[in-house]
């Protein structure tokens, strides 16, 4: 009920950078498919930036648009592109996605995909610009009430309770220094090392990296007592603290 219905904020997100050395649409698509098949969850709807700055020859806009289309079809989400400012193609203003400024990307040399099968004129190198940005821990001092949802990009610490019907989510660990009566989902971006700690386990649901357990099962293990939840071999372990 304030005057403004939105707030503008700056944000840093981790993205995948697709650095193209030489262009061959089929070659790129085939190799990308193989990469995605290895870790499908990682690539699903992942934001991706196409980098043309390492290209040896020029590329036509039709080719570039076809590439964007092909990558989207693979389930990735192309959010922008980047190019050597000295060699900016004449059609750069007509591209449907955002032109991003060049940055000092930190290349992580990933094992080349079965290099003997790669056709020699195509080399695709996946560069993950920031592998994992350490996110600040979020600390909540008030009870999280029924119907409320709190999400932390790093760890989440709740100093009081999480009421029944409330939901807490974190990319990292979740600590609740009170009763956990609602739902707690740690490692929501797939971090299998994430854990949940609480002073009194009364949860409706606990989940780590998508592996969940409901209160019926929890009641048989630890109930109304301090507990931690972690994952071993895709199996959720609930143990008293």
């Amino acid at each position: 009920m304030t005057d403004s219905g939105f707030q503008l904020k700056g944000s840093v997100v981790t993205t995948i950078l697709l650095e193209i050395r030489s262009f061959s649409l089929e070659g790129i698509v085939t190799q990308l498919e193989q990469k995605i098949a290895q870790v499908p969850n990682f690539f699903n709807q992942a934001p991706i930036i196409i980098d043309l700055s390492k290209m040896k020859r020029g590329i036509r806009i039709e080719e570039f648009e076809a590439l964007i289309q092909a990558i989207s079809t693979l389930g990735l989400s192309v959010i922008g592109w980047r190019c050597d400012p000295e060699a900016l193609p004449v059609w750069h203003a007509q591209v449907s996605i955002a032109l991003l400024p060049a940055s000092k990307a930190r290349a992580i040399n990933m094992a080349p995909v079965s290099s003997d099968e790669v056709s020699p004129d195509v080399v695709v190198k996946t560069v993950v610009e920031e592998k994992r940005v350490p996110q600040a821990t979020k600390v909540i001092t008030k009870p999280i009430r029924s119907g409320q949802q709190v999400y932390a990009e790093g760890d989440l610490i709740v100093l009081t309770q999480v009421s029944a019907g409330a939901e807490v989510l974190a990319d990292g660990n979740i600590h609740v220094y009170g009763a956990l009566r609602g739902r707690a989902l740690a490692g929501v971006k797939g971090d299998t090392e994430a854990r949940i700690f609480c002073k009194s386990m009364e949860a409706e649901l606990v989940s780590i990296a998508g592996n969940f357990m409901l209160s019926d099962a929890l009641q048989k293990i630890v109930w109304k007592d301090s507990a931690q939840v972690y994952l071993t071999d895709e199996q959720l372990e609930v143990v008293p603290l």
């Binding site: 009870p143 009430r145 029924s146 119907g147 409320q148």
Partner: peptide, 16 residues
């Protein structure tokens, strides 16, 4: 009690 918990959440988030 559950509904009161819900309204407490609204008091802390949607009030002036």
């Amino acid at each position: 009690v559950r509904d009161s918990d819900r309204i407490l959440g609204i008091l802390q988030s949607k009030s002036k």
